[in-house]
Amino acid sequence: MSDTDYNFAYLDEQTKRMIRRAILKGVAVPGYQVPFASREMPMPYGWGTGGVQVTAACLTPADRLKVIDQGADDTTNAVSIRKFFEKTAGVAVTERTAEATIIQTRHRIPEVPLTEDQILVYQVPIPEPLRFLEPSEVETRKMHALEDYGLMHVKLYEDISRHGEIATAYAYPVKVEGRYVMDPSPIPKFDNPKLESAALQLFGAGREQRIYAVPPHTRVVSLDFDDYPFDPSKAPHACALCGALDSYLDEVITDDAGGRMFVCSDTDFCASRRGEAA
């Protein structure tokens, strides 16, 4: 156990039970946004308050936690949250995807396929996929309830009419188990196929007070048109560091003269490939 005065994983037990009930409901109704009484966390909204609460509710002392931000373990956000749980829960941490039992993520799904023993927790800024199309929450909830999803395709239609293709590159809407349309959080559309996973995937939106889930092996279909099928494409390059051709890449500007390189966004994936190569 940790040597702090905090309750295990910061939140009090009642709150964690409340969040677990929301998670269970989310698992029972895949893709459905379950309202929950989001707590004030010691970090600003937008820094993953939803994900942190879900992680806190799932952690056990035996867990090994990994936190990534845009695929990287070493960014401020990831480091802060990892330290937060090291301090408040005293759990073991790791940067190795395969070794982690719980992975909290912002905007990526790790490249290595996850297993049934793992939980992936997403930080979600705006859980409502219909939000920018229909401003009324009352109306969007009705639309979900009645499976009235024509509007979602209107957005994709608008993309094609304006850009000649579906230009939505992240937060690409999906239909879960043939029922609810869901915002997969701002992951690149390249990651969408990985939403069909062996791991339990939980989504937490702190400011918007919503939790939703994709249970293991759930069918997740990216929305598209018959004549404009979903295309999980990425930058047509190889990683400049590990040479991977099948990983999602970040473009890194290296100087003021237009120099740039493409590297794996998943730092652990890239490092382990280089470790193997070496």
């Binding site: 024509g150 509007l151 395709h153 209107v154 239609y157 598209d224 048109f225 018959d226 004549d227």
Partner: peptide, 12 residues
């Protein structure tokens, strides 16, 4: 197009 898509049209 919205009403068409609302009743299931999926061909752009």
């Amino acid at each position: 197009g919205e009403r068409l898509m609302a009743v299931g049209a999926r061909h752009y």
